[in-house]
Structure formats: C-alpha cells, structure tokens
Nucleic acid binder design. Structure first.
Lengths: 199, 199
DNA sequence: CCACATCTGTAGCGAACACTACAGATATGT
DNA sequence: ACATATCTGTAGTGTTCGCTACAGATGTGG
C-alpha cells in the first residue's frame, strides 16, 4: 500500500501568507478566496490541510505564537524587570509598525467581536494574549524573588498594565499611528512602570 | 398633496438597539437579520431610514458620539488636568464594564480590520477615536495656558497616552477583564500621567 | 509495474448574505 | 372625501460565502 501523493506546497510558508491576510482583514473580513490566492493553493488543499477556515486560523495562530515566543525569550532574558518592560514596550512599538507586516498585532486585529458561529475566535485570540501576560507575570515574580523588584510590587498588576498598553498601541497602529508615536507612548508607559516599582 | 404615512418606530430607540448589536458582534459579524430583529422593524424600513448597513452604522456612531460628548463634557470640566486624566481613566474603566452595554467600546469593538468593501468602517471608527483624543489635547493646551500644566509638557503626548491606555482597556474588557482589573490599570496609568506632568 | 493512498484542480453545492420589488396600509393637504 | 406621499410587511432578488464531490495526477510500498 502506497503513501499517497505528497503535498505540493510548504505548509509553513502558506501559513505565513494566511497570517498576513487574517491580520490585515480580520477573521470575518477574510474570505477563503483571498486565503487560497495568497497561499497559492486551491480550496481542497486548504481544507485537507487545515480542516476549516477556523482551523486555518488556529494553525496560523500557533505559528504566530511560535515566533512570538522566540521574540519574548529575548525580552524576558533581560537582566532587570525594568529592562524587560523597556524592551517589551519598545519592541512592540517597532513590531506593530514594521512595514513587513500589517499594522498592529494579529491577536488584536484578528477580531475582538465576532458574529454568531465565530464566537470561538475572539476567545482564541484572547487566550494567546493572556499567554504573553502570563509570561510577563512569571518574569516579574522571578524578579521579586531575586530582589530586583520590591516586596510590595504586584507582578499581576504590572503584567496587566504592560499588556493593556501594548494592546492600546495595536488600536492606534491600526489607524495609522507612526513608529515614533508608539515609541512616545511606550516611553510614557515606562515611566509609569518605574513609578509603580518604586512605590 | 399629502405627507405620507408616518414612521411607526422611534429612530433613536432603534439606533440604540443597533448600536448594541454592532458593539457586541462588530460591524462584519452583524447581520441585517440581527439588526432588524433587535430594532423590531423590517428590512425596508431600515433601508428607507438609513440607506445601507454602513449608513446605519454611521447613524449609530453619530448617536454614540452625541452621548460620548455629553460624557466627555463632565470629564473635561474637571478643575485640573490631573483630575481630567483621573476621571477619564476611571470613567472608562466603569463604562467599559457597565453590564448595561457590551464590554469595551463601540469605537474599538466595532472593527479594527475589515474586509474588502468595508475599508471605510475602521476609518470611520478611528475618526471618532481621534475626536476624543483631540478633545483631551485641547483641554491640556488650556491647562498649560492656565499654568495648571508645566511649560515643557506636551499635550499631544499626554492625550495620545491616555487614548492608548483606554483603547487597551477595551481589548482587555472584550476578553472578560473585570471592573476592578481595569481600575487597577487606570490607577497605574494615572501615576504615569503624574510623573509625565512633573518632568 | 502495479495497487493504493493522498494530493491537486475544476466546477459547483446549499446556505446565508445585503438588499429590494411590490402591494397594501396610513397618514397629510385640499 | 379624495389624491398623494410615505411607510410597512411579505417575499423574494442576485451575489458571495464557506465548503466539497469528483476525476485526474503523482507519489509510495510490494
């Protein structure tokens, strides 16, 4: 018994293309026709590989998360909590205005509110955002253990604050905010972080 | 010559219903069927009154902006710039978690990224967000003239920062953040504001 | 070289979409 | 009371949506 005809396209490259479309148009604003064209495959290939439109999104999100984890490693490996916050904010400002990608972040532009039948999509995106928040919190917990952060600092609050600011930057990036504008916001936020970690 | 049969529904009440649907499902996630059911009218009445789905959204946004302006007046009439920022942040935390409305804010949940043919929608929402930002900036310009804010403070930066934070709060509200969580974020942001206005 | 398993491309499926034609209802102005 | 103008409800329109049946292509294992 044979093993069948091999796939004629690279799944990861195709996912990168799909990611871009979802990112630019949101989940519900994206059509299968746009996806198949961007991925240079036909619908049956898409459905054989990913199951459904939502399955494709999840696969794209998995790939997005992979890349993001690698990126977060760089951020989290900074020496101090302050430097973690600084890198996190500034790298976000740059990433969200990187001309190689659509503005903002897939986890926000992908869809905050969806229609009946796609209720799972905002939930899925939120779970990935929470992941980042958790990674930050864990890092700040460690910083407390290392006496890098003060005793009375709440890692959860810090992580939530940074997460909120970068999500807000996504919204502004989607309406054309420049890299400089986002960096300005990041700089102000960093001062808040400093102030918070002193008190 | 007669003036025709009068409209049998209240347009403003219908707009409030439409607003809720757009807010909860986003522009593209909302169907005409959902709208007509929520508004308790039939499609021809909707189209006679508002022209199109996008026309209805704009009318709903106009009504939303009206209410928001009244709300912003209360905020902007605070005595000091610091109190303006405090009210703005805290009222946002409360409004975005008001059980009477869907979580977040129509201007964000409505749709950051839309499909081909609806490119105008994110633009329209962004314009309304910019309006709020402009109102804040003008208020901070005044605060500078009144020597309430220091000479070297940039009103644009302050307004952008507050706008970014509240937009970020919208994202978090959409994934179930509680009022207390948002207030915590608002409190941290306010410290940033204080720090920024000192330096 | 052959049986088989899987992929590819064409072509199109039913359902849901935004939107509207039309006929009847209900007001106004004279 | 009557002509007119606009609204309402029913019942659709054409289009696009996500998705798939099917036949031919292309590989593997024996």
């Amino acid at each position: 018994m044979g093993m069948g005809r091999p796939r004629a396209f690279d799944a990861d490259a195709a996912l990168d293309r799909a990611m871009d479309v979802f990112w630019r148009h949101g989940y519900e604003g994206t059509t299968i026709a746009q996806l198949t064209e961007a991925m240079s495959i036909n619908p049956p290939s898409l459905y054989a590989a990913f199951g459904s439109k939502e399955g494709l999104l999840k696969a794209a999100l998995d790939r997005y998360t992979e890349k993001r984890d690698a990126w977060m490693d760089k951020v989290l490996n900074a020496q101090t909590a302050h430097e973690v916050a600084e890198r996190f904010l500034m790298e976000h400002a740059d990433a969200q205005t990187d001309p190689a990608n659509p503005p903002g972040c897939l986890l926000v532009q992908g869809g905050l509110a969806c229609g009946t039948g796609s209720e799972n999509v905002p939930f899925e995106l939120a779970a990935r955002r929470t992941r980042t928040e958790d990674q930050l919190r864990e890092r700040f917990v460690r910083a407390k253990a290392e006496h890098d952060l003060d005793e009375n600092v709440d890692p959860t609050t810090l992580a939530r604050y940074l997460s909120a600011v970068t999500s807000g930057m996504c919204v502004m990036a989607s309406s054309g905010a420049t890299r400089e504008t986002l960096r300005e916001i990041a700089a102000v936020s960093l001062k808040a972080f400093e102030e918070q970690t002193k008190g």
